[in-house]
Amino acid sequence: MKKKEIFFIAGLLVLAGVMWLGFRLSGQRSHNTIRITVDGKEFGTYSLDKDQVIHIGDTNVCEIKDGKVTMIEATCPDHYCMKQKAIDEHGGSIICLPNKVVIEGEDTADSSESEDSPKIDAVT
Rank of each mutant, 00 (worst) to 15 (best):
V61M: 07
K4W: 09
I56S: 06
S111C: 09
I6N: 00
N32S: 14
H79G: 01
A74W: 00
E63N: 07
M82W: 02
T59V: 09
A86Y: 06
N32T: 13
D39E: 15
I95V: 15
T124I: 14
M82L: 13
L97W: 10
D107Y: 08
K100W: 01
E63P: 00
T75F: 03
I94P: 00
I87A: 03
V69H: 00
V69D: 02
V53N: 05
N32W: 04
L21N: 08
D116N: 14
K2A: 10
E63D: 05
V14K: 00
T45F: 00
G91F: 04
V14I: 15
T108L: 01
C81V: 08
I34S: 02
V38I: 13
D107H: 09
N99M: 09
K119A: 13
G11Q: 04
D49V: 15
P77A: 12
N32M: 04
I64D: 00
I54Q: 04
A86K: 08
G22H: 08
S26V: 11
S114G: 15
K68M: 09
M82A: 10
E104V: 13
N60F: 02
C62Y: 03
V69L: 10
P118H: 05
G44K: 00
K68D: 00
H31W: 07
A10N: 03
E104R: 10
V14Y: 05
G40T: 06
Q28N: 13
I95P: 03
D88K: 03
T108N: 07
V14L: 15
L48C: 07
L48A: 03
V69I: 14
M82D: 00
S117N: 10
I6A: 09
H55P: 04
M19G: 06
I103L: 13
V18C: 06
E106Q: 12
C81H: 02
E106K: 12
H79A: 14
G57K: 08
S93C: 07
F8S: 13
T37E: 10
K2N: 15
S114T: 15
T33E: 10
